[in-house]
Simulated scan of single mutants.
Amino acid sequence: MSVSRSEANAASVIALVDLLTKVIAKPSDHLNSASLNHALTSQGALAAYESLELGIRRASLNTQKKACDFCLGGFAVLDSLRRRARESIANAKTQARHSGKRTKEGLLLRVTEQEQEIQLLLEDLQLLQRAFERRSMQARSYAESSKVPSIIALCRAEQREIDTGLDLRRKVFEASNVRPIVRP
């Protein structure tokens, strides 16, 4: 059975996503891979990256973007993973250079890294809150457009229950409160 070119490109993109996810999770395993490190430098370099044993094929940037649209919903997902993998490897290299040091420089570096991680988590939280609020508005809109009183009442009751559960959070983040950490 023959696989179409678009299916092969999509499979290659999926394999690339898998590799980038592994790099983000455990960058120390990929510190010495010169070809991978070069591929993470730009979108074009990533498109040109090839690892046949992992199922990743070289492609033009436009071809890779089309494959991403097909299987990931957009190229931004792959590019975000590329940038995060590049940052993970850079952080791992920095940690390797400063590991075991209890100098002022090493501690300041650790504080900076933790501040960056906190900032990423705050940005992720903001994105999740936006997605949750949008889903809630869509659910309300769909229930109201049905014009069925029982569905509208059920939607309101279930959303009140969810809101009550969210009120139990220890720290509430308003979207306007998510700002970069500013060092004095």
Results as ranks from 00 to 15, higher is better:
Ala153Asp: 04
Val178Gln: 05
Glu7Tyr: 10
Ala59Gly: 14
Val17Gly: 02
Arg97Tyr: 02
Gln116Met: 15
Glu115Gln: 13
Ser51Cys: 08
Leu81Asn: 04
Cys71Leu: 03
Lys101Glu: 12
Ile14Val: 14
His30Val: 00
Glu158Ala: 05
Glu7Gln: 13
Ser141Lys: 07
Val77Glu: 08
Lys171Asn: 12
Ile181Glu: 00
Leu72Arg: 10
Ala90Glu: 05
Ser99Pro: 02
Leu127Ile: 02
Leu40Trp: 03
Arg130Cys: 08
Ser80Pro: 01
Ala25Gln: 12
Ala59Asp: 11
Ala139Val: 11
Arg156His: 15
Val148Asn: 12
Asn37Asp: 06
Glu113Lys: 00
Gly100Cys: 07
Gly73Gln: 00
His98Thr: 11
Arg83Phe: 09
Lys26His: 13
Lys147Ile: 01
Glu105Met: 01
Ala8Asp: 09
Arg170Val: 14
Met137Tyr: 13
Glu105His: 08
Thr41Leu: 10
Glu50Thr: 06
Val13Glu: 00
Glu123Leu: 11
Asn9Gln: 11
Ala39Met: 06
Arg110Asp: 14
Ala10Gly: 09
Lys93Arg: 14
Ala59Met: 14
Ala39Cys: 05
Gln126Val: 07
Val172Glu: 15
Asp79Tyr: 04
Glu123Tyr: 04
Glu133Tyr: 15
Gln95Leu: 09
Asn62Tyr: 00
Arg140Gln: 12
Arg140Val: 06
Ser12Ala: 03
Ser42Trp: 03
Glu113Ile: 06
Gln119Glu: 12
Leu120Asn: 06
Lys66Ala: 15
Ile118Val: 13
Asn62His: 06
Arg183Ser: 13
Ala10Arg: 13
Arg5Asn: 07
Gln159His: 04
Arg110Val: 11
Leu168Ser: 15
Phe75Arg: 13
Leu108Asn: 11
Ile89Glu: 08
Leu121Val: 03
Asp124Gly: 09
Leu61Ser: 08
Gln129Val: 05
Pro149Phe: 01
Val148Phe: 00
Ile56Gly: 05
Leu20Arg: 02
Gln114Phe: 06
Ala39His: 00
Thr164Val: 10
Val77Gln: 12
Ser60His: 00
Arg134Ala: 12
Glu158Trp: 12
Ser141Gln: 14
Lys26Val: 14
Glu174Phe: 08
Ser141Ala: 14
Ile24His: 11
Ser12Leu: 04
Ala25Tyr: 04
Pro184Thr: 11
Gln116His: 12
Ala45Val: 03
Arg82Tyr: 03
Ile56Met: 05
Gln43Cys: 02
Val13Gln: 02
Pro27Asp: 00
Ser145Ile: 08
Tyr49Met: 09
Lys101Ala: 09
Val172Asn: 13
Lys147Gly: 00
Thr164Tyr: 14
Thr21Lys: 15
Val77Thr: 14
Arg169Glu: 12
Leu154Ala: 12
His38Asp: 13
Ser150His: 04
Thr21Trp: 10
Asp18Met: 08
Gln64Ile: 04
Lys65Ile: 14
Arg156Gln: 15
Ala139Arg: 15
Ser99Cys: 10
Ser42Gln: 01
His98Phe: 13
Leu78Ser: 02
Leu120Cys: 11
Asp29Gln: 06
Val178His: 07
Ile14Pro: 04
Pro27Thr: 03
Ile151Pro: 03
Val172Met: 15
Leu168Asn: 09
Gln43Leu: 06
His38Val: 11
Gln64Ala: 10
Arg169His: 06
Ser176Gly: 07
Val13Ser: 01
Thr94Pro: 03
Leu121Asp: 12
Asn91Arg: 13
Arg130Leu: 05
Leu61Tyr: 08
Ala131Asn: 05
Ala153Pro: 00
Gln116Thr: 09
Lys66Cys: 11
Ser28Cys: 10
Leu46Ala: 02
